[in-house]
Design a protein around this nucleic acid. Sequence first.
DNA 1: TCACACCAATATGTGCAGACATCAAAACTC
DNA 2: GAGTTTTGATGTCTGCACATATTGGTGTGA
Lengths: 253, 253
Amino acid sequence: MAPGGAIMLTTMSTSLHFRAIEHLGTRIVSGKLPTGHVMLAEHLEDELKVSRSVVREAVRVLQSLGLVETIKRVGIRVLPAHRWNPFDPMVIRWRLAGEGRGAQLRSLAELRFAVEPAAAELAAENAPGTLRSELVEISLAMREAGRAGDMATFLELDIRFHALVLSGSGNEMFANLIGQVTETLTGRTVHGLMPEHPKEAALQWHVEVAQAISDGDGDKAREASSSIMRETIADLSPGWAGQPRVFVPVERR
Amino acid sequence: MAPGGAIMLTTMSTSLHFRAIEHLGTRIVSGKLPTGHVMLAEHLEDELKVSRSVVREAVRVLQSLGLVETIKRVGIRVLPAHRWNPFDPMVIRWRLAGEGRGAQLRSLAELRFAVEPAAAELAAENAPGTLRSELVEISLAMREAGRAGDMATFLELDIRFHALVLSGSGNEMFANLIGQVTETLTGRTVHGLMPEHPKEAALQWHVEVAQAISDGDGDKAREASSSIMRETIADLSPGWAGQPRVFVPVERR
DNA sequence: TCACACCAATATGTGCAGACATCAAAACTC
DNA sequence: GAGTTTTGATGTCTGCACATATTGGTGTGA
């Protein structure tokens, strides 16, 4: 679905087409339908109790995500995981829901670690004025809420803080990661990975990032953001300890 | 399409469904069909001279990319650009082909600048042994080809070098950027943005990255990779000078 | 007269069923 | 073993019924 799968999910949940995508997508990503497995459209009609058009439209979407390919006279074949589009919101959601959860969280965290400092640097150079000042306000409010131990408010501000940094970069690919970052932050709190009070240093780094962006100091913004990321990774990494890494083949040209 | 749109493009170019996606996708991304523009499925049938099933399957795919939404009793509405999935290979390809080329190149370059050093660091920690040694070999061959001014060989090796670094990270999201990086590198050569001989320093940085990865020295690998990226950005940035930045709105929760 | 609530008409997407076209795997012929 | 035919699955087209949101009209009360 469009960036923001959760919203779509509610508005489209009545559509048979969408349900077919979910059904097949989750089963493929979870590994229940292994690589190379071949299905017949007719068989899917029976299984899902829907008509051919619904199955076909769903298969077409999955095809565009790289999850399956259709071959005449053969059927619908499940593609290997390295062919899936790892940036697609639906694929990410399905991986988070099943086996691949740990590996997916690690991938997202590493991506975020790479991107957020870069986004902070760009925001310092490009962000509109209103965004800069809101960022400073939020960072101060975060510090206050953090010290007070008001974790609900803290989470809300934290989410908005990181969203603003990503948005303020003026890079739409960075901004597109807002959803995943939001999920990470909420997940961390929901799963009880946050301490009673956030570390004072972390609070200070947020203020630093905001101030540096506000001052247009790209280097400082990047550095402070890196510090936050290091801390975040340290908090989260136990969640994916021991997950095997997958090395996608580099085909020779 | 699956990661690797170019391949799909050739294998599927006969399909009406695929042509419909391309037709609509390019026109939406290029701005010829502006945000909010409403189309009727029936009208698209006439325009493309195809049947409903083809149109519907195409619209479903575009919907999953966030390019359009379908509303009962209204039609098919074009969504604003900030709803498009900026990581989708098709969207990227369409943007590169039209108006948004400059902005798209900048986005990709910034993403690459953020990701490649991180990938190099991870590769130093995780890459399999064979990959490490191949990387060293390639970096040395690159230096040789570069000094000899054999730019064809250099480009080929350069592509494989960066692909191996991304793949060696063991992060499938990083690895998925191989296609875009390849396109950037080829484009830079094809469009005559490369000097007669690559700079000696750049050649040396590549060797350094490979050696550091081979030695498992993550910090050094990251630093050397950053140097390459700074150089690369400096070479390419004139290509998108003056492109306006788009700040995607952060919706309040 | 105006404002509002309600209801019916209607256009459009959604889903279904069946037909024929196309193409590649598999079986068959020589 | 090479070439040909058969076969079976996807690809495409079409007609139809249903669900639903917009639209406009209708009625009621202020």
